[in-house]
Write a protein that binds this DNA or RNA. Sequence first.
DNA 1: ACCTTCAGGTAAACCGGTTTGCTAAACGGG
DNA 2: CCCGTTTAGCAAACCGGTTTACCTGAAGGT
Lengths: 358, 358
Amino acid sequence: MRQESRDRPRIADVAREAGVSKTAVSFAFNSPERLSLDTATRIRDVATTLGYRPHPVARMLTQGRTRTLGILTPQALSVVFANPFFATFSEGVAAVAEEAGYGLLFVSPLHGSLAHAVNRATVDGFVAIGLSEEHPEVEQIRRAGLPIVMVDSAAAFPEHAAVDVDDEGGARSAADHLLALGHRDFLVIGIEQPTPGTRADSTGVVGRRLEGYRKALAAAGIDLPNDRVVVGPATIDGGRACLAGAWEDGLRPTAILAMSDVMAIGAVNAARRLGLHVPADLSVVGFDDIELSRHVEPPLTTVHQPVRRKGEEACRLLLSAIAKEDSARPDHRRLETRLIVRGSSGPAPIRKEVAAGR
Amino acid sequence: MRQESRDRPRIADVAREAGVSKTAVSFAFNSPERLSLDTATRIRDVATTLGYRPHPVARMLTQGRTRTLGILTPQALSVVFANPFFATFSEGVAAVAEEAGYGLLFVSPLHGSLAHAVNRATVDGFVAIGLSEEHPEVEQIRRAGLPIVMVDSAAAFPEHAAVDVDDEGGARSAADHLLALGHRDFLVIGIEQPTPGTRADSTGVVGRRLEGYRKALAAAGIDLPNDRVVVGPATIDGGRACLAGAWEDGLRPTAILAMSDVMAIGAVNAARRLGLHVPADLSVVGFDDIELSRHVEPPLTTVHQPVRRKGEEACRLLLSAIAKEDSARPDHRRLETRLIVRGSSGPAPIRKEVAAGR
DNA sequence: ACCTTCAGGTAAACCGGTTTGCTAAACGGG
DNA sequence: CCCGTTTAGCAAACCGGTTTACCTGAAGGT
C-alpha cells in the first residue's frame, strides 16, 4: 500500500542531504525569512535536485485545511456533466474558487451513498446543489463543522447560507406570457426527481415553478389538472418523451411550459416529428436560458436565470463562511429571473373544433 | 488555524467514551472482525452518538492513497466548463471514476501556475487533457511517482499512457468532403493556444488537424497559404470573430474548415450576419460533433470523435496504472473519427466573377 | 566586562488517524 | 493439569509534514 511513495523523497531526506534539520527545510518553504538567505537557497537547491515537493496530504493534516471546495450533488457525475445547466453553474463556482486559490472536488454518490462520499471528501466546505429537504447529509456535514452553502433549496435549510432564484416569479412570467398570447390549453413538463424516494417536494425547484405556473393560470381562471403535468429526466430525450407521451394520451395543448431548456428543446423536437410547427401550432417556453437556447431553431423563448452568477455567489458565500468564524447569521441571496421572448412562442392557433374528436 | 476542527470529535474521544483504545476504535471501522461483536457495535454506537467520522485527510496520510483522480488542464476552469467538449469528456471520466469509487478533482492553474496546483493536488493520478509538449508539469508529476494519462497529446509523451483520436484522418475526411462538393476556396478556423508562450506545435491537436486539411487539399492540387488559416478562442464568439475578421480582410471563401464545433457554429452565425446563406453561399464543417451540433440550424456537418469514450478510456487506463506497479509498457489507445454530413455543407456556389472586385 | 537582544537554527510535540507487535485471558486437546 | 492456539485488545511506532519552545553565539549598548 505504500506504492505511491516508492521513491518520493521526504523532508528528512532533504534535511540530511543539506545538513540541516527538518524544521529548517520546512522554513525554507513556508517562512524563508526565518532563515539566512544562503541556507534558504541552499536548502531549496537541494530540494529541487532531489525532486522534493512537500506531501500535500501531510500538509493538509497539519494546517487543518485543504484549500479545496466540494461541489455536492445527489446525482451521478455523468448526468451532472451532461447537463449544460450544471456546466454553467460549475463555471461560476470555478471562476471564484480559482481566483481565491481553491481547487474543486466534485462529490457525488459513491456506490450509491452520498454520505459515504461526503465522508471521504477532503474539502474545506461544500456548495450543495439540488439537495432536497430530506437529505441527511447536510446534517452530517454540519456536525463535521464544515460550512455549506445550499443552492436552489434555501427554504429547506434556513440555518445554512443559501443562494436561489425567484423560481415562482419566473414561472409566473412564462405562463403570463403565453396567456397574453391567447393560450388556454397547457402542458407542463417538469423535472423528475433524481432520487426516487423523495416526494415531489413543494419546496424544491420543481415545486416552486409549478406553483408559479399554477398561480398565473389560476389568475386567468384556468385550472391545471394533474394529468396536464408530466415529468421526465432533464435531458433532450426526456423532453421529447414527455410531449410524445402526452400526445399519445390524447392531450392536444397549444402551449408548453417546460421547467428546463433542454426539455423544452426536446419538446420542440418531438413536435416537429408530430408534424407540428413551432410556434404556429404549438408554443414552447423553457426555463434556465442556457446558451444553447439562443442557437436552436426556432430560438427558444425561456425564463432566464443567472446560472453562472448563482455559482459565483454560492462560492463567494462559502469562501466567506470558511474565512470567518461568525457563521451566526447565514446569508441568503435570491437572484432574479426574467422572461426572454424569442421565436418558440406565438399567438395561440385558432382552435379547430374538430381537433378534440380524434 | 484550527478552526475547522473546533468541535469535531477525534478518535481519542470515541476511545475514551467507549472505554477502549484508539486501536479498537480504528478496528471497529476498518476490520471489525478483529473485535468481538459487542465491542465493535458498542464502539460504533458511541461513535455515531458523538457524531464521529474518521478524518479523511489523516486517513489518506496513513493509507497512502486518496481515492481521488485529478483532471489536469492548462486552462482556467471557467473556460473549461464553458466548453461542451470538456463537459462531455469529463462525463466519460466521471462515469468510470465513480464506478470505481474515486472522486474527481479538477486541477487548473492557481494564480497562473499549473505546477503549483499540481503540487497541492491530493490525487492518486492524473488525466491530463490538452497539455502540449512543453509543459514541464508532466515531468514533475512523474518524479512524484504519480501515474498520468495523456489525452490528445500521445505523440509528445511516448513514455506515458495516452489516449487520442485520429485527428489527421478526421480533418482529411472533412476537407475531402468539401472538395467533392466542388469547393476550391477555403478558410481554416483553428483553435488558439491557450498559453501564449507555446508555439503552434505540430504535435498538438491543432497541428494534426491542420496537417490533415493540408494533405487533402494538396492532393487536389490546392495550396493553403497561411493567411487562409485564422485562429481564435474555442468559443462561439471566437468562431464568429474569425470569420468576420477574415471577411474584413477581403477573404471570400466558399467553404470553412473549423477545428471545433463551437467555432463552426460561431462562423455560421457570422455568416448569417453578413447576409450569407449556409450552405448555399458558404459551407461550414466543424470538428468534435458535440450534441449541440445536431440541434443548430442548419445542423452542422462535422467530424465526429468519441469524446465521452475518450474520457472513459483515459480513466480506465489511469485506474489500471494506479492498481498495478508494472507501468513498464505505457498503453496508447487511438480512437477513430468519422465525418457526419448534415446540413451546413453543400455544393460550391457558382462563382460570380464579379465577387473578387468588391 | 556584563547584560540584552537578535539572528539563525534545532529538538520535540503535534495533526488524527492506521498498523505492527505483543500480551493476557480463554479455550481445547491429550 | 499442562501446553499450544485462538481471541480480544492495547501501547507504541508510523505516515510526512508544521509549529512551538528553546538554545546558542555574536552583535550592540552602557
